[in-house]
Design a protein around this nucleic acid. Structure first.
Lengths: 194, 194, 194, 194
DNA sequence: AATGAATGAGCATTCATTCAT
DNA sequence: AATGAATGAATGCTCATTCAT
């Protein structure tokens, strides 16, 4: 049992990753169970063995990406360093995910449209938690005198917005390298906070 | 002739406005011709008298909103004042549209998914033009010594991103009034530029 | 009244000719009232002033072409000459129509599909009459000893079929000129009859 | 694997045969996926499991009939006998198909209207090949001195036209039996060739 | 665990037809 | 006599979902 369960989990993860890729390419509505299955060399029907329905699959995708990003962010948050140093790491981490997981993160954009009441709670909570990590650095910076902000929550929103917007304009093959991109964000976000 | 043409235009505009509302509620894929028609107390078929197909209707919606927003922004840009004063007006204008026209502006988010080659050009151009207005104030502020930015284009992207993100978190009935929202944006955006 | 009636007739004829052209290009189902009207610089609705409905219009088109062709054929039949001479003229006449009025003549092909009970009668009668002209020359030829056929009706069917098939393969810009085409038909049809 | 594939093929063939019947009754445009499905006691959607779209289904219908007819014709061509004997058999074969598969063969009539570029090629080729079988007997007859024709291609066109026209007038319950019909065609076609 | 097959609801789109003006 | 506008029925097609095997 344990073995087969573990096997199922592996498979589920595989499916999730593929589904995420498809959603990133086609968008939520554009992603069909058919295409996801095909990409996995399975048949449509088989997906339903692992996930109750499309909504469920999308929900798990979303949680998967979010959890992943959250793990990375948490790590960045918990390493040693000044608030500034920590924040720089967090910015870097967030941007990595923003660029890779375009559309899945975009599911974020209108969760109410895509998730039902039951799913919405956990998703919203994850997002809140994710955001709160940023609040924590900011608070830390304020406490240590590194940052000076009157409206920390508002500023955190601005920061996240600015970073999430990347997807709209950043092209990996454009003039700005990923490193420069991150440097710029660090620079200007710090300007906002100091 | 003039009269009937004008009437047709009126009707088209009516349809556009309703369509925009529906798209804002349901998203691009979720908005059906049926629902748009129903909202207008028309039948599906009648919509096709005014617009060639759904894509065309969506395209016009998008142009409509964008042009509108652009007009307002241009006005804000061309009134008297220091760069700072102008920018404050532009921020206010942009936020007004960002809040009202949620999803239609969100069509913006992945234009490549929704528009065909022919439509993409004009849309992209409009968006570019819209952005360029912000570039103009920033340049003006730099020229007059009001602002100090090394990466004006990058900063403009940040600013727009931060503002467009509003849709994700701002609730008109929440703690922050629209005025406070605007004030905050002005404040922090200026902090970014000075 | 007389004047206006005459005017109406003229208009009807105009419409018929345009409709015929459209049907020849698009086929029965492919021909839309819209396109016919557009070609006439009218609106769809106006067509209904002159014709009860699409079926009626098509019916009149068909009768128009058939009557026209019949007139020409009758003339060919009634001119002086031996059966052979007459037949040659009739062949020439028939081919002219077969080439020009492709699709309208093709309405012929499955009249039951396109016409209702009421319309079918006259159409079938016209066609029968048209065919009978050929029977007449053949009989005349037999009587005069020019032709020798055991199954005149059957042969007439063959002849008409062979000629109507032209539409499937004859290209005015191909190797065979219209004259050669006619010559060949005359030659071989006569071979059939002698 | 083999088994399920074979099953699918059987089903496809079943569908094709039903579709052919419907097309024969209603014509290309008149045949709806709905009706074809209903006739098969399936739902519309299921048809799309087997065929990509209506065009594809029609295309396969056409190929199916044509291939079938071609097989029979080829057999008639390759059996022993003088050119005359062979031709008689071919006429018989062709007439069998012309009578049974009315409309599907009529798809033939304006292939350009119904098939897209990709489909047109194979269809036209099949038709050409089919016609060429008749050319072959004719050439054989000329070579053996049985036939005497100056314009063999033209005559072949006449012959095919004459036979295809059957659909327009032949009624199985009419005066002429199928056998008489064939006999007559053989007789007069040979008259044309000698 | 997986699949092939089938389903049905839903959607965009077309078009003949109507009718008030 | 003509038109603009509206309608609704029909049609091809897609796709999430189900289920027997």
């Amino acid at each position: 049992m344990k073995l087969s369960e573990r096997k199922t989990l592996k498979k589920k993860e595989q499916i999730l990753m593929t589904a995420i890729a498809v959603v990133n390419k086609r968008g939520y509505d554009g992603a069909t169970m058919e295409e996801i299955a095909a990409e996995l060399l399975m048949t449509k029907g088989s997906l339903y063995y692992y996930f109750k329905n499309k909504g469920d699959l999308m929900y798990e995708c979303h949680k998967f990406v979010l959890s992943d990003a959250m793990g990375a962010l948490e790590m960045a948050l918990n390493e040693e360093g000044t608030a500034e140093e920590i924040l720089r790491r967090m910015i870097s981490s967030h941007i990595d995910y923003a660029i890779e997981e375009k559309e899945t993160n975009n599911l974020i954009i209108e969760p109410h449209r895509f998730f039902d009441e039951e799913q919405l709670g956990p998703v919203l909570q994850l997002r809140k938690k994710y955001s709160s990590y940023f609040d924590q650095v900011i608070e830390k910076g304020i406490a240590s005198g590194e940052f000076q902000v009157d409206e920390p929550i508002f500023v955190r929103m601005m920061i996240l917005g600015a970073m999430n917007w990347i997807q709209q304009w950043y092209r990996p093959d454009g003039r700005m390298t990923l490193e420069e991109l991150k440097r710029n964000f660090e620079e200007y976000i710090l300007k906002l906070l100091k």
